[in-house]
Structures are given as C-alpha cells and as structure tokens.
C-alpha cells in the first residue's frame, strides 16, 4: 500500500518545496548567525567568568577588571549583529 503510493507522495513533496521557495530566507540565516555568535560568546564567557569569580574570591579589587574581562566576548554578538542590518 505504502509502496504503491510512494511515487505520488514524492511528487507532492517536491511540488510543495517548489511552492514555498528556500527553507531559509536571508533574514532567517542572519538571525541564525546572531544566535550562533551568542552561543559562542556564552561559551567563551563560561571560562572567563569562572576565572573572574575565582580571582574576585581571592581579591575584591578584581571585581571591575573581572567584570570587563567577562563581557569582552560579548563583542562577538555585536559584530554578528551587523549581519542583520546588511541583509
């Protein structure tokens, strides 16, 4: 039963694809890029944040440098955000 319907199903699927165009529009791709960049920034901050908290625990004066260092990878997201304005 399913085997008999196979070719017809494929036809329907292919037509549907043609009708809707590409799965990912430019805007969608740009959004994905920002999201991925944010993920990368988060991953980078994980290590730096851990180290910064460690340094702060030993020495309170490290609070400001620690904070600055921790948010530095955030520039990744800002740069990635440029893509959103370009497309």
């Amino acid at each position: 039963m399913v085997l008999e319907l196979g070719p017809e199903l494929a036809d329907v699927a292919l037509q549907a694809e043609e009708a809707s165009g590409p799965t990912l529009e430019n805007e969608g791709a740009a959004a994905l890029a920002v999201g991925l960049a944010a993920l990368a920034a988060g991953y980078a901050e994980r290590g730096i944040g851990a180290a910064a908290v460690g340094a702060m625990a030993e020495d309170d004066d490290m609070f400001v440098p620690g904070l600055i260092m921790t948010v530095l990878p955030e520039t990744l997201v800002i740069l990635a955000l440029v893509v959103v304005f370009i497309v």
Binding site: A50, A51, V53, G54, A55, A57, E58
Partner: peptide, 14 residues
C-alpha cells in the same frame, strides 16, 4: 572540571 576557577584562585595565592 573547572580548571579556570581553580587556576585563578591558585595563581592569586601563589
């Protein structure tokens, strides 16, 4: 493991 945290503290004590 959390080498970053331990390293920061250890280096400060060092």
């Amino acid at each position: 493991s959390n080498p970053e945290y331990v390293n920061a503290r250890v280096r400060s004590r060092r």
